[in-house]
């Protein structure tokens, strides 16, 4: 029992608790959660709800980064998926047709990235830059430049509905987290992905098919991005090709890094990456309720992120051990 508690004390959990406590100091009502209209309501729930899209991106991004790659296209893929779902329901498709279509769009984007990285051996940062840049153009082509507003209640439910008292985006993120962690750890995928990330050449010599694994992780990342894109579109009842998911790839990468997965590949932790996403969102929500002038947003964020990364640095952990 004692061991378990100790395992929970990581730089990430300390950082999250610290940020939450800081928010509480700035805004005493931060921790109050009430039951209203059949669901939970409060700033903490907002953190979970608003952090869900980045958490979902981070789940896919963790797998990509574990292979020593990176996926810069996820923000643009969100825009594409949102555009497909919104345009779909607006042109008469049911939500059961439009949502799978949007997911397929995400899978195809991931497949494209995976083929560029694994088959053509293009550096991931360059390969995924293609869709990062061109993806918004594709999304705009789909929406024809408008914000496509829709009123389909089932689609809206994905973004704003609730079940078991929790917002749908939170439930989707939690389900994806549990499912992915189970799949990755109960099958050999986790080990093989780590092996490819640690040493791709040795993986080849050991008979691991690095190519299909690489394609798989990029396809999965594209899928996660599509899920996040559908949630974001459903949340605002519209697909905003220009702004949906803008710069979220960077938040997702940051979440993974805060979660302790090295950009050099290898060992990864999906739950920690999700925790990282929550730390980022706790900061954002904290800034919103604190009443700071918006000019300080980025400075405050930068300061906290630097503090977290310094806490996690090898030098700091050595100091901790000594103490």
């Amino acid at each position: 029992m004692k061991l378990r508690v100790q395992r929970l004390i990581t730089p990430q959990t300390i950082a999250l608790v610290a940020v939450l406590l800081f928010n509480w100091l700035l805004f005493p009502g931060f921790f109050s959660v009430e039951w209203k209209d059949g669901r939970l309501f409060g700033s903490l729930i907002d953190v979970l709800n608003r952090g869900a899209p980045v958490a979902i991106l981070a789940i896919g991004m963790t797998m990509v980064i574990a292979t020593k790659g990176v996926d810069l296209s996820v923000g643009a893929v969100m825009a594409i998926a949102g555009a497909v779902a919104a345009t779909g329901v607006e042109s008469g498709l049911t939500v059961w047709q439009a949502v799978p279509l949007a997911l397929v769009a995400g899978l195809l984007c991931g497949l494209w990235n995976g083929v560029l990285v694994a088959v053509l051996d293009i550096q991931p940062i360059i390969a995924t830059l293609v869709i990062m840049v061109a993806g918004r153009g594709i999304a705009q082509l789909i929406t024809q430049g408008f914000i496509v507003t829709f009123n389909d209640p089932s689609l809206i439910y994905i973004g704003t509905g609730s079940a078991l008292g929790l917002p749908m985006p939170v439930l989707i993120a939690v389900a994806l987290l549990i499912l992915t962690t189970l799949i990755v750890r109960r099958t050999a995928l986790g080990l093989l992905v780590e092996a490819v990330g640690v040493n791709r050449s040795a993986a080849r010599f050991a008979g691991i098919s690095a190519m299909s694994l690489l394609i798989l992780v990029y396809v999965f990342s594209g899928f996660c991005a599509a899920v996040a894109g559908i949630i974001v579109a459903a949340d605002i009842h519209g697909a905003d090709a220009n702004n949906a998911g803008l710069w979220l790839e960077l938040d997702a990468i940051l979440a993974v890094v805060i979660g302790g997965t090295s950009l050099l590949g290898g060992r990864f932790s999906i739950p920690m990456a999700v925790l990282g996403a929550m730390i980022i969102q706790a900061m954002n929500t904290g800034i919103l309720v604190s009443g700071f002038p918006p000019q300080f947003n980025l400075i405050v964020k930068a300061g906290i992120i630097i503090a977290i990364l310094v806490l996690q640095s090898p030098v700091a952990s050595r100091l901790f051990k000594r103490a």
Binding site: S43, D46, R50, I147, V232, D235, I236, G238, D240, N243, A244, L246, N284, T285, L288, V289
Partner: peptide, 11 residues
């Protein structure tokens, strides 16, 4: 943006 507008208003 719409989504930021919504998030800020929630706060």
């Amino acid at each position: 943006t719409r989504s930021k507008g919504k998030e800020v208003m929630e706060g």
